[in-house]
Design a protein around this nucleic acid. Structure first.
Lengths: 342, 342
DNA sequence: AATCCTGCGGACAGCGCTGTCATACTGGCG
DNA sequence: CGCCAGTATGACAGCGCTGTCCGCAGGATT
């Protein structure tokens, strides 16, 4: 019904208040040297006209590119990423910055497009969970002076800050925990093998496995299954491992989706294998699942803080920030071989 | 190391390419009437200088407000909201629009601030899961010509589009299902009582309960517990209900967090009460929890589509879009009174 | 030869705002 | 009383870009 009347400008406000444009600007922006009475007049005029400062014009004039920080993640619907986003947002809030998000669905091509779009939209900084298929566009964003902070997955071939987890230690901890419970055949189900997080977690697994006295000729990777990015795929991998002639008595699942997939595979089994998962998740306590836990919200906050500091002239590209992980025992990781933990 | 050289402007590009500003503009924007050779020259110059069109200036000049759509939700870390965000983002993607998100943490005051900020940042449209504490700022956004679409919770006292679930029918369905399994004392654990979703789900509950032959003097709200917004609170409510002298034999939990809270309360009980939850969640199948399910991603998409249509001159404020819900039987809702379903 | 395209390129204004500089007026102080 | 510091206000340019209008060349048309 309402005609989309073009919004009031500062000129209109100034006119209505009977003051100059500049004075109106000062009043609206809360600058000093404006008489209280004048301030009131301008405020009233602004209210009457439904005036809203056009921040685009304001930022343009001041040579500021924008008030947005871009976050590029895999999939917003994954709780890990959305917690990350929450952490980032919380940090930005205090600075009057806003968060622009988008999901790559782990496609390098989409990552490229999204980063380009964000750069075109003048984001102040980029926080990226990179697919690591290519980083040309990220590099060129950097070259344009846009701070790029890698999160969860470190920067590769690129001097940039990153905030990551202590993946290798976490995985080793998990496997050693299973070994301590008596397990010797421990399966590993992992994400895309190109991802650094995956590789590090696998390294941690191998560290612990290779420390075990082995029958000669044994392949430490015999029970390793990789490149499963969703729960359904991980479920299949778990079923396959469990149907081996000598199946593993325990599994290590390298992220939340994989853990969930494995759990769905256990339904109907007389004895569920012991399990330690990387990433905590809702209901892990109800289910009694032992996990390598960490704080994705904190990870997002840290990344955001680094991005903001870089904006304030901090030198980019220092050592990666490595956040600690810890094992939370809930039962599934403490069950001895052949013992059901449910 | 790199000095944050001030980015190249179109003037620089034009100069370097030896053409006029306007010609460079035409070339960069792919407008017609530019000779192929000229286009090449400009492209090369732009590349050399690392030129990036300043979209703020461009949009300002063209009188376009921005390419952003704002989404204001309760808490990004809640899978329900992040799925919603995913749906919105997916829809925007094809239009070259980007998504700005922020969380209110269910505070009306924060909602106010966020909406104002987004309006100041010139978002093209707003998609809101309103706290419903007040809608003044949303109304004024509307008056400025910014389409506002309510999602999950309908518009109140405001002519605006909304996309909601069939909450009442869903809740009634759930309760009738429990009644069919033999339950007569069914507890209700709900969210903030001010939320329309809550009220509708409670109405659905009461519909079904009141259809039951009652002992006179019986209060249909005897087993209703409200205003629990997180899992911890819901857990307490569940424990309290179960410790009544005549405890309910079944529970209806009105959203995903409440359901999870109730589930954590069941640990250690010899017999878990039957349970139907509103909202599906990860691992509901592993746990065997019967739920009233729906598609939050689709809900986000629909809301985004409506926002985009309104931008394209569709009349705002039609009938609310009501999305269907369906019951998924997984065991917890089919157990007879006194029978453990786990 | 006069006319009209069509393809190409440029000059200029101005989007809405703020930084700079200038002006006018107050009061205090030596 | 003259001068300076401080406060209140305004005129104006210009951020980087694009829409409008205009000019010029060369080929087609009458």
């Amino acid at each position: 019904m309402t005609i989309p009347k073009s919004p009031a400008t500062l000129v209109d406000v100034a006119e209505r208040a009977g003051v100059s444009l500049k004075t109106a600007s000062r009043a609206v922006n809360g600058e000093p040297h404006v008489a209280e009475a004048t301030r009131q007049k301008v405020a009233k005029a602004a209210l009457d006209l439904g005036f809203q400062l056009n921040s685009m014009a304001s930022l343009l004039k001041r040579g500021i590119r924008s008030n947005f920080i871009g976050l590029v993640t895999g999939d917003l619907a994954n709780p890990f990423y959305s917690s990350l986003a929450k952490g980032v947002e919380r940090e930005l809030r205090s600075q009057g910055l806003q968060l622009v998000v988008s999901s790559t669905d782990e496609s390098g091509e989409r990552e490229r497009v999204l980063v380009e779009e964000m750069v075109a939209r003048q984001v102040r900084a980029l926080i990226v969970v990179s697919t690591h298929e290519s980083n040309d566009t990220l590099r060129s964003a950097q070259e344009r002076g846009i701070p790029v902070v890698f999160v969860d997955r470190p920067a590769l071939d690129l001097t940039a800050d990153s905030v990551v987890l202590d993946n290798r230690a976490g995985a080793r901890l998990a496997i050693e925990h299973l070994i301590a419970a008596g397990h010797r055949r421990i399966g590993f189900i992992g994400d895309f093998s190109r991802l650094p997080t995956h590789q590090q977690r696998l390294d941690g697994y191998l560290d612990a496995i290779e420390a075990l006295p082995t029958k000669s000729g044994q392949d430490p990777r015999e029970l390793v299954r990789e490149d499963f990015h969703d729960a359904a795929g991980a479920r299949g991998a778990a079923l396959e491992l469990l149907s081996l002639s000598t199946p593993p008595t325990a599994l290590f699942t390298s992220n939340n989706r994989v853990t969930i997939g494995a759990l769905t595979a256990f339904r109907g089994l007389p004895v569920a294998p012991a399990l330690v998962g990387f990433d905590d998740f809702d209901l892990s306590d109800v289910l009694g699942v032992t996990v390598v836990s960490h704080d994705p919200v904190e990870m997002g906050s840290r990344a955001a803080r680094i991005a903001l500091e870089t904006l304030e002239s901090r030198q980019p590209g220092g050592e990666p920030v490595v956040l600690p992980v810890r094992l939370i025992e809930r039962g599934s990781g403490e069950a001895a071989p052949g013992v059901d933990w449910r």
